[in-house]
């Protein structure tokens, strides 16, 4: 059965997080090297299954996969309460925020043109003001540049969207995904992807802490 992450939307995911922390705190035995190895091996097993999955099947949203990740979180929590470690904490934070944060994450695609957009309801207006393709001397595309106008009741802003350079507005991140010359009516359009990930700063913090730990290991 495929899990819909939004079943666990806040505050359910936060509650689950507290349970994970509580269990990790109380279950001292889970901090042993044996338990850490077992938990890692379980995650390895589900990742291997995912490695052989055909495209399209959302194995990462099935119970075995999620349980393996959550179990690793419990074991890591237990280990961290016994012995603080920058590496473990960074991994813990990134996993904690990533797994629980999925319940509050949304994404989808938008088709944007000069008169507006379609694809999903957003709490603001959005339209395409211009689209250019910078090219190399040989004619190959170098950069795709989409000028967009975002507005709500209080203000209007103009931003430029490129691949690798997303734009933020009212808690939404917009990414340039694709473009087209026209949909049969001569009007150029862009396909944008939007995401809403309230927990992303926590995930990023976990990632940065893990990097700090990896860099620190060079100076031992």
């Amino acid at each position: 059965m495929i899990i819909n992450p939004h079943w666990f939307a806040f505050p359910v995911n936060a509650l689950a997080g507290l349970v994970i922390i509580f269990v990790g705190w109380r279950a001292k035995k889970l901090s042993s090297i044996t338990h850490i190895v077992i938990a890692l091996a379980l995650v390895l097993a589900v990742c291997l299954v995912q490695g052989f999955m055909p495209a399209g099947y959302p194995f990462t949203r099935t119970w075995p996969f999620v349980v393996a990740l959550v179990w690793l979180l419990v074991v890591l929590t237990s280990a961290l309460f016994r012995k603080p470690s920058l590496t473990y904490f960074g991994l813990w934070l990134a996993l904690f925020a990533g797994v629980l944060g999925a319940a509050d994450s949304y994404n989808g695609q938008l088709l944007v043109h000069k008169d507006g957009f379609s694809g999903a309801p957003l709490p603001f207006e959005l339209r395409l003001t211009e689209f250019t393709v910078d090219t190399y001397p040989g004619g190959e595309p170098m950069d795709y540049r989409a000028g967009i106008e975002l507005s709500d009741k209080n203000r209007t802003v103009n931003k430029t969207l490129l691949v690798n350079h997303p734009v933020s507005f009212k808690g939404y991140q917009l990414y340039l995904s694709d473009y087209g010359k026209d949909r049969g009516d001569g009007i150029p359009y862009c396909i944008l992807m939007y995401t809403r990930q309230p927990w992303r700063w926590l995930v990023l913090s976990g990632i940065l802490l893990m990097m700090a730990a990896a860099l620190k290991s060079f100076f031992k």
Partner: peptide, 21 residues
């Protein structure tokens, strides 16, 4: 250590390019 840094740099880049870490 190098592999982890490579993986994490990839995750940060992925968020910028594809919307997800």
């Amino acid at each position: 250590s190098f592999f982890t840094i490579g993986m994490l740099l990839g995750a940060i880049w992925a968020k910028q390019a594809w919307g997800d870490f």
